[in-house]
Structure formats: C-alpha cells, structure tokens
C-alpha cells in the first residue's frame, strides 16, 4: 500500500500515460512516411513534433500531479496549494491540446494551396469545440476546489 505502483490512481494514470506514449510514438515514427513528411515544409514537421512533445509532457505532468499533497500547515493552506497546481495544469492541458489541433492543421494544410481556407475553417471549428469542452471540464474541477478553499477561509 505504501508503494506508488500499487495505487489504483497511479495504475490508471500510468495506463493512460502508456497508451498516449505508445500512440504518439507510433505517430512520430510513421508520420514522415505515412503522411509524406518529406514533402511538407520543415516548419510543418517541427510544429507537429513540438505539439506531440507538448501532449506527452502534459501526460507526464498529469502523472506528477497525483504525487503527494505534502504537509502545508493546515487544510486551507494545503487546498490553496492544490488549487494553484490545478490551475496551472488546467491551463497547460488546454494549451497542449489546442496546440496539437493547430499542429495537425498546419501540417496537413502546408502544401495545399487550393481551398486551404477549408482546412483552416475545419481546424478552427475543432479547436473551438475542443478548447470549450476542456475549459468546461477543468472549470468545473477548479470550481469545486475553489469553493472548498472559500469555505475554509474566514
């Protein structure tokens, strides 16, 4: 019970992390051949790889987030610390997922000259929905913790 690897939360996060690392590694290895990376401009390749790394970093930070809450004097202080960490993580979560969508759009529309605006419009719509959806999820989680902090404040 005192080992991190035996925790249910840890197992769930580790499983998700493993899946994401595998999936994005496969994309990284095969995208160049499968999606004609050689024919795309260098900047499009760099943007895509950077976005994949951002998403993977997000997952790793997510794993770190389930690490010890630690001792911070009293409940209010500990919750405030958790709230701060959660806010930062939420921002990174939304940004990394948004960057992934933008990178995909940049990569696939890089060599398209005709109807490039269709890609831009589609990517914009997907980005809006994604950011809206993620913001709502994180907003609800932050609200619960923020309310708890308020309730233990004078």
């Amino acid at each position: 019970m005192l080992q991190a690897r035996t925790r249910t939360v840890y197992k769930q996060v580790r499983r998700q992390l493993l899946w994401e690392v595998c999936a994005f590694s496969v994309i990284l290895i095969f995208y160049y051949d499968a999606f004609d990376g050689a024919r795309k401009p260098v900047y499009a390749n760099i943007v895509l790889v950077a976005a994949i790394l951002a998403v993977l970093t997000h997952s790793l930070l997510g794993y770190r987030r389930v690490q010890p809450v630690g001792e911070t004097g009293h409940l209010r202080g500990a919750l405030e610390k958790q709230l701060k960490r959660l806010r930062v993580y939420a921002i990174y979560s939304v940004l990394s997922r948004g960057a992934w969508t933008i990178a995909l759009a940049v990569f696939f529309s890089a060599t398209i000259t005709v109807h490039g605006w269709v890609f831009a419009a589609a990517a914009g719509a997907i980005l809006t929905v994604q950011v809206f959806w993620l913001s709502r999820i994180w907003g609800a989680r932050i609200r619960v913790l923020r309310d708890a902090v308020k309730q233990v404040s004078a």
Partner: peptide, 25 residues
C-alpha cells in the same frame, strides 16, 4: 514533513482531508 509539533492524529486529519477534497476523479 511531520515534525511532531502536533499530535499524529491532527496531522493525519490534515493530510487525509486534503487528499479527499482535492481528488477530482
């Protein structure tokens, strides 16, 4: 982080309640 300045149970309440409240699953 437990320096023995408070009773073990007091410290335990702090960590346990923080864990219970901060978990958003």
């Amino acid at each position: 982080g437990f320096r023995g300045q408070s009773a073990f149970s007091t410290w335990m309440y702090r960590v346990a309640l923080t864990t219970a409240i901060a978990d958003f699953r």
